[in-house]
């Protein structure tokens, strides 16, 4: 019997791509393709959904990770595969913490997606070891420590050092040290330049993950 799949992506083309991939496989049955993560639990309540392919950032403001967390809580037997094109490391960490069954970067090919789906449905948890690395100035994103990434994420929201320290429960001096280290690594002249580049390249997303 084919697995029922729910595709959740607000963008037309990626969503249709997922639809076609699912339809082309006889192991999967496309139940619905949704534009909003907010309504995904409704479908899980009504239908037997075996797998949800869930994007993270939606145009209507809903968050795929929030919806995934709710689905895993209310319908534990439903598998959830998180998909995204952003390499924000917090997404990967949160996906693991909420019990998602897999994580997939959209840049990978179609064949890989089917393989990931098969592995998930066979009971595996499929996560990349790390987020893809990219260049930030003279540094690679893998060179940043988790603490530095956390500070950088808050910086992109325009927060002051004091606000960053309060949000992360660290000292202001520690914030300054992290920023200084990142500027040294990347070669950027100031924190604004660093924050803009990190945001543009998708290394961090300022909003709540």
């Amino acid at each position: 019997m084919a697995y029922n799949v729910l595709v959740v992506d607000d963008q037309n083309i990626p969503r249709r791509l997922f639809e076609m991939i699912v339809r082309e496989s006889d192991r999967y049955n496309l139940l619905f393709a949704l534009e909003s993560a907010a309504v995904a639990p409704i479908y899980c309540a009504r239908y037997r959904v075996d797998l949800v392919i869930m994007d993270i950032v939606m145009n209507d403001g809903s968050n795929g990770l929030d919806a995934a967390e709710r689905i895993k809580k209310d319908y534990p037997s439903t598998k959830v595969l998180i998909v995204t094109s952003m390499i924000e490391s917090a997404y990967l960490a949160r996906a693991k913490s909420i019990g998602a069954d897999g994580f997939w970067y959209k840049e990978a090919g179609d064949r890989e997606l089917i393989e990931v789906m098969d592995r998930i449905m066979s009971g595996e948890s499929v996560f990349p070891d790390n987020a893809p690395t990219l260049n930030i100035g003279m540094a690679r994103s893998a060179e940043f420590t988790p603490a530095e990434i956390a500070v950088l994420r808050e910086m992109t929201t325009g927060a002051s050092n004091k606000e960053i320290a309060e949000r992360l429960f660290i000292e202001v001096g520690t914030v300054k040290v992290h920023i200084s280290h990142m500027l040294q690594k990347t070669g950027y002249k100031n924190r604004t330049e660093l924050a803009i580049e990190a945001r543009i390249r998708g290394l961090v997303v300022g909003e709540k993950t």
Partner: peptide
């Protein structure tokens, strides 16, 4: 921009 970039890549 990121969303548009996603669409562009697709």
């Amino acid at each position: 921009m990121t969303i548009q970039k996603e669409i562009f890549n697709a």
